[in-house]
Amino acid sequence: MRYLRLIDRFIKVSFVEEVSYRANFWINLLHSLLNLITGVLGVYVIFGQIDTLRGWSYAETLSVLGVYLTIQALRNLFIGPSLDALAGMDGEVWSGNLDFTLLRPMSIQFLASFRRWRLFALFDLLLGLGVLVYAAISMDQALSISNIAMFLLTLLFGAGILYAILLAFSALVFWSPGVMFMWIFDGVFQLARYPLGLYPGWVRLALTWIIPVGVITTIPAQALRGGLSMERLAFSLVMAVILILCASIFFRAALRRYASASS
């Protein structure tokens, strides 16, 4: 209850913060549209040359992009900005303002994950869902209720996996402040714009087991087109749970380390 009230307060405050820079609205709009256009064109240009890419049709590949955009929008809604305030370029680990955060009488991980909201990301969410709907309509086979349910479940698990990875990457900053781990992750996460199957074997393995960003977008897209086995669904769930647990432990260790090493 208390945590829900806090989230409510965080959202309101973030809204006030956001509208204090009105000029940013248009720039955000420009960014969002450009992001959409470059993403869709990236797929469109390739399928201007060929019909299927290693078993993935235009619509199916587009659905992966839709999942990517949707999950990115969810991330940018609160996890991204919150973790950025902690471990980003001007974040608290750099500026030293972490002291105040550490002194809050509550779960630091909760604070670090929920305190900043970027409501403009709701517009991105709409764009992402739009791409998904368009891709789903353009697919050959009709959508079944079970496919949609499986899709939503795997999307949720994917978001959980992404959260775990982001938390772990943020925690790395405590070890070497100044290294832009999030920038590295963003680079790798770009690969998730396309189906995992498009890449050579070694890239595929790395994106499944080392930094499992491929799982985040490809599995939901497979669920949508109806090619997802129950094992894959379970795999997704187990991976999400394990990663979130590990990331939380790692994050806590990082906080302890900060307290013992920083000045």
Binding site: R2, R5, L6, R9, F10, K12, V16, M106, L111
Partner: peptide
């Protein structure tokens, strides 16, 4: 607004 957030946190 900052004070409000602190009120909730504590």
């Amino acid at each position: 607004d900052t004070f409000g957030v602190l009120g909730e946190i504590y």
